[in-house]
């Protein structure tokens, strides 16, 4: 019944697909972190317009299926004379999606830092930026590692959707292999193994970081 020979011959292609999955996910996570931090700052700012903007952003990208975001980003702009490539739509979509979540993660992290920590810094002459950089960021990063790890796993998994707009990542390659080998079950099982290994690697790394950053007993 199960016959993996045809699929095993295609392992190098799948590995290449997995590589694409990894770099797209990593790029989206990093861009999403930058955007998420900016949005988090906006969400916490005193400017009501910025706050509203960030709230809408979060609600929108946490409320929209990534698939729908991708369809919109890929098919809508050409109608307004803006050409898109699958890759830009993919990167943008994944970034916006994870940024929505990361905004909330950072905000929750920010709220765990007692306001007194910033006051103490202000009293010593720290500027706002220095407080953000030296007092908040390290603490926020530390408490948000578990949530960020989950988010990273989610992004790796979500990147499978990029196959819909023909980005040749792991799932897309697997589909191509299925259409040449006619072995869907075997191919997709191996594909699943790849995803599982990637997710496990990400969560193990997250746990490692968490352990490293927890202050060690003196």
């Amino acid at each position: 019944m199960l016959d993996f020979t045809a699929v095993i011959a295609q392992l190098p292609r799948m590995a290449a697909g997995a590589q694409t999955t990894i770099w797209i996910s990593a790029a989206a996570l990093l861009c999403g972190a930058a955007l998420g931090l900016v949005m988090c700052a906006a969400r916490l700012s005193r400017n009501i317009f910025l706050r509203a903007l960030a709230a809408v952003f979060v609600s929108m990208f946490r409320g929209l299926p990534l698939l729908v975001v991708l369809l919109i980003l890929f098919y809508v702009p050409p109608n307004f004379g803006v050409e898109t490539t699958p890759l830009t739509a993919a990167l943008l979509g994944l970034t916006l999606n994870t940024a929505g979540y990361q905004t909330e993660i950072y905000r929750a992290g920010f709220l765990t830092v007692p306001p007194g920590h910033a006051e103490a810094a202000r009293m010593l002459g720290f500027s706002r930026l220095q407080i953000a950089r030296h007092i908040f960021l390290p603490q926020i990063f530390r408490v948000t590692i578990p949530a960020l790890t989950n988010e990273a796993v989610d992004v790796v998994k979500s990147s499978g959707l990029l196959s819909i707009i023909a980005v040749t990542e792991l799932l897309r390659i697997s589909q191509q292999i299925v259409s040449s080998t006619y072995r869907p079950l075997e191919t997709y099982l191996v594909c699943g193994l790849f995803y599982f290994l990637m997710s496990t690697a990400v969560s193990s790394f997250g746990r490692f970081l968490e352990r490293r950053l927890t202050p060690k007993p003196a």
Binding site: V153, L161, P184, L185, Y188, L189, F196
Partner: peptide, 21 residues
Amino acid sequence: ELWRGTPLLLQLFILYYGGPT
């Protein structure tokens, strides 16, 4: 771990296209 570590889309493919095997 397996179900949370892989994309839903892939799980659907396995059921829908792999089931017939």
